[in-house]
Design a protein around this nucleic acid. Structure first.
Ligand code: FES
Ligand code: FES
Lengths: 160, 160
DNA sequence: AGAAGCAAGACTCATTTGGTCGCATATTGT
DNA sequence: ACAATATGCGACCAAATGAGTCTTGCTTCT
């Protein structure tokens, strides 16, 4: 249930990588804090070609700026604080939603006799909200923060 | 993204149906508030055989009690207030989670170089929480409650 | 006995994902 | 100018998952 696709996962990783790059810009880059698709793919051991396509999608969505040519690459279009995980996921996976019934036709096949829709929509909204509040800057965990025992005892996910 | 499977959707609908049945029990049922798989499938126009399997799964998970034979059927094992949407979804879709990386092996293939995991886990927990709080009793909307303009202006889901 | 119902599995078909290849185009260092 | 390094885009493919069907057997009620 509620699975995030690998592409979205990769996308978030890449974004995080770029956000870190932006913090400590190295010498003479056409765009500050840029990195090539291959470099990022290499860093995380993910298929370079696939990552390339993901980054292109992200660029088209306006979350990244790209620059071709030697020493080119991608960089964040905005500040890391201004990009939400929701945007990233939506850009990659498309606006699919929990209800499994919002189709292209606007209404569900079951519309009318499905009474479940509205309550689920609220859940959906909450999740959207949640994801919107999570910005990619938040993904950068400063290793110096103390382990929060507050949220210990979380769920244990057992294999299916 | 974050799609609920149709099976889970069906399951929730069925549960709701049974919850309503339980409220106004009709005459001489082996179990109070019971309905056959076919009856429910009929009511919502969903494939009977498929629903049957879903209900069986739910029964195995202990959310429903079943009774074979003429006038048999399924009924809620517990009160509608004591069954969360989370349980239903988990029973049907299995404990898949947002991260797409929690595998049977316990750790992800990318473990080590994936830095995204922890923040996403928190999101995951929040969603779990959300779903756990939604009980199937909540799905029964009494038509007499006023339309809450408070949550108007929610997301507009556009076709992909 | 026979009908109504659940239980369980194998099996098919369509969709979605994850991933690859090839080629075109843009940029830049030398 | 030219080669090296990148992105941009589309077609393509294989594996996994999802949705739904079929068959066979068991249980209970009338
Ligand atoms: S499944 Fe479409 S409205 Fe519920
Ligand atoms: S994808 Fe598995 S830990 Fe991030």
């Amino acid at each position: 249930m509620l699975r995030l696709t690998k592409k979205a996962d990769y996308g978030l990783m890449a974004l995080k990588y770029l956000a870190e790059q932006a913090q400590c810009p190295s010498a003479s880059q056409p765009i500050s804090g840029a990195a090539s698709a291959k470099a990022i793919a290499d860093a995380y051991h993910i298929p370079p070609q696939l990552l390339a396509k993901i980054l292109q999608t992200l660029a088209k969505a306006g979350l990244l700026v790209s620059h071709a040519g030697t020493n080119g690459g991608y960089a964040l279009a905005r500040d890391a604080h201004d990009i939400s995980a929701f945007e990233v996921i939506r850009a990659i996976d498309g606006p699919l939603f929990i209800t499994s019934c919002i189709t292209i036709h606007g209404t569900c096949d079951l519309a009318g006799h499905c009474t479940i829709k509205e309550p689920l929509r609220k859940v959906n909204d909450s999740i959207t909200d949640l994801l919107s509040k999570l910005r990619i800057a938040d993904l950068i965990e400063h290793a110096d923060h103390p382990p929060d025992a507050a949220l210990a005892g979380g769920l244990v996910t057992i294999a299916r």
